[in-house]
Simulated scan of single mutants.
Amino acid sequence: MKILVGLSGGVDSAITAHLLKEQGHEVVGAMMSIWDDSIPTPQNKGIDACLGPEDEDIETVHKIANFLKIPVHILDCRQEYKKVVIENFRNEYKEGRTPNPCVWCNAYIKFGVLPSTARKNGITFDKFATGHYANIIFNNSLNMYQLCKSKDAIKDQTYFLYRLNQKILSETIFPLGKFTKEEVREIAKKIHLPVAQKPDSQDFYCGDYNDILQFPKISGNIVNKTGEVLGRHTGIWNYTIGKRKGLGLSGGTKEPLYVINILAKQNVVVVGTKEDLYSSSLIARKVMWGSIPVPKEPIKANVKIRQQHKPAKAIIVPIGIDATKVEFEEPQMSITAGQSAVFYKDNVVLGGAIIA
């Protein structure tokens, strides 16, 4: 089988290509180029990030391809990435929400635009593979492919992949789903892979997010729950739910204050106590049921409201065809508009939605 592997210059995607080649497949590498020179070059080069200048990554990808003895292609995905990921990122912050760009990048760029661009460039392949820590199974009783958690619970990346549809799941392979990160590193050392010790990417962008947002400073009030003005801000996009440090408030409060709400239309940031951060429910829109038929009745599931969040027991209540209400068994802290609520049943990712 001929398999296209998305290479990033890191150890995970490189070992993915290695494992598939060891299994006897014909492997072709592809790196998506997404860096737009209109974004200022980040000064903090000590942190490896997904979005940033690509010269070193391209050089590394070529080294990996030469080491593995596979062909590699650098594919221009910049315009699509800018339109889908960057514009959504900017629009969400402008509306007082905190987006997760990795969700949109995976669903529409990495698993959509990249393989599509490869085919447009005459690259033929049977399956597409990446170095994500996740698994895909076929459920015979449902006649559906299902996205499942990886062996490595810490590295599991299904939270970012919940928007993959049936077509994408049917055409995708995740070779690392049955490995831990430690096992992957050991394989890399054993074969003397050039990037065996390369650190993982730590963030979406290692510079100041204002480099991407490029919004003019718009000052407004910081208020408490009763509307009392406690201070001023220079842009609501500099705040997210749960933020405590750097609020710019003078003393006078007996306990720490946190951002508990962002009112975009009023250009107001609302602060309160830690207790105010807890909520028993949320409304989410742009629902994607990737691994099961669309439920018509409430269902029980475990729900993650951010990547590092411990899944919490909840009841998911459908609202029309594009929204859902999530009612938690116990109140959850810092539910943030713009982030994703992802629904799990045992190891299966049922689906997810964007918190509204």
Rank of each mutant, 00 (worst) to 15 (best):
L169P: 06
P175W: 05
S170F: 12
L169W: 10
E182N: 14
Y162C: 08
K189C: 14
Q166M: 11
L169A: 02
E183M: 14
L176P: 06
V184I: 15
V184Q: 09
R163Q: 12
K178F: 14
T158Q: 05
F174P: 00
S170K: 09
K181Q: 14
Q157G: 07
V184M: 10
A188T: 06
T172C: 04
F179H: 14
V184Y: 12
L169G: 04
S170N: 13
Y159T: 01
F179E: 04
K189T: 15
V184T: 12
R163S: 15
V184H: 08
F160A: 13
I168D: 04
Y162L: 01
K190W: 10
I168R: 10
Y159F: 15
R163W: 06
I191E: 08
K178L: 11
S170R: 07
I187G: 10
Q166G: 11
A188Q: 08
L176Q: 13
N165V: 03
P175I: 04
A188L: 07
Q157C: 14
R185W: 06
F174E: 00
Q157F: 02
Q157R: 07
F174Q: 02
R185G: 08
T180D: 03
E183Y: 06
R185A: 11
I173R: 00
V184A: 10
R163C: 08
I168H: 07
I173Y: 00
E171N: 15
K181W: 12
K190N: 13
F160R: 01
K190C: 09
N165S: 13
P175K: 04
R163D: 07
E182Y: 12
E183F: 12
Q157I: 00
K178I: 08
Q157A: 05
A188K: 01
K190L: 13
T158W: 00
